[in-house]
Design a binder for these strands. Sequence first.
DNA 1: GTCTATAATTGGATAGAC
DNA 2: GTCTATCCAATTATAGAC
Lengths: 228, 228
Amino acid sequence: MARPRRPLLSRERIVAAALLLVDAEGLDALSTRRLAGELGVSGPSLYNHLATKEELLDAIVDTVVGEVDISMFATLAAPGGGVGWRAALHAWAHSYRAALAAHPNMVPVLAQGPGHRPNALRLADAVFGGLVDAGWPRGQATRIGALMRYFVTGSALGSFARGFPDDARVYAGRYPHLSEAHLLADHQRAIDDGAFEAGLEALLDGLELRYSRLVGARPPAAAPGSAD
Amino acid sequence: MARPRRPLLSRERIVAAALLLVDAEGLDALSTRRLAGELGVSGPSLYNHLATKEELLDAIVDTVVGEVDISMFATLAAPGGGVGWRAALHAWAHSYRAALAAHPNMVPVLAQGPGHRPNALRLADAVFGGLVDAGWPRGQATRIGALMRYFVTGSALGSFARGFPDDARVYAGRYPHLSEAHLLADHQRAIDDGAFEAGLEALLDGLELRYSRLVGARPPAAAPGSAD
DNA sequence: GTCTATAATTGGATAGAC
DNA sequence: GTCTATCCAATTATAGAC
């Protein structure tokens, strides 16, 4: 085949296909040949659109980060928005986790930090700026950004429930407290979602305690939660 | 070289060398040929001690997990040990993070769950058992195990501070709130350690709030913390 | 802007000598 | 229990035709 009338490829098509491939088969399955195959072209054609494989990886990562909603941090400076930081962090954490959990194989790459990727830097800028606007000292705002990333990336890296074999014989005798661990996999979604939400609420409660000390207010009356 | 008088290799030597290699150059650098080179033998010799590469990887992972101290969960059932769960989780989290942060390239593998690895299953058994002994309902104990893993693995996956380019020009103009982000890398240890400790304390405060509601006690008076 | 052909490595694993 | 030799498949990337 010679030069087609219209390009068969584009950066966007390539990145989208690469993300699909990584999601389906892992980072190691992302080779130029394999990706080209999925796109119906031959290997070297990709090099007309991307200089190196690393550039491709960067593009995929930043696409994922671009799916995270950061709009909630824009309004925290407004008067009376002083309590908004908690709701903003909560909503952001859920959006962040949803974006990452949709592409778990990308998390180890993404968790290395923003590097020079625009969407990742925009995200960091919005979070830090929002927290400072809300009254957090800069040092604490940095820490909150970091600890939130720790929690969210950790939760998206791998399912807790799916990590346990569903064969009861694995646990019998040897691990007395795990006698029902073989059932975890059957409730993966509920357990992972529940653990994330429980951890997020605990984390935010802890931060709110610090915030109330910071501004010299009474600690908030914690909302009653459901026992389990 | 024929059969040596004494074996040149052993499972332990191989695993130790493999861990060194992964720590120094990443998971992709771990090939049978390369590893054999480090050990001063030729490639196929490894197969006298390990059936497959996957078996090797499993052994490395469980070695790392085996470095985590879980002894603090053994005594939580004792009368009056009812408040010990917080201290136990705190000490465990620090030990857990130290073990993982020493081998960050292994974290994505390890975060997939215990699988059939003995040390990982022992760890899960100890944590869950300890929390139940301390009075947590089983469902909540599961969630706490999960959310702690999220936080610790996330914190060990990659440095927050090192993720930001140290070139101030990256941020100039485009990311107004990150005008000092180029300094983060210079204080990597302090920032990452500080964020981990802050997050851990917030998390434990939040859990203690829930625990106090659970047992019908007054919420704990939070210890005064240092502002920043 | 895609193709074919190919360079130059590298990968995991096996067979059989000693 | 280690060696050499070998298999077969895969990798990133380039050169040059069309």
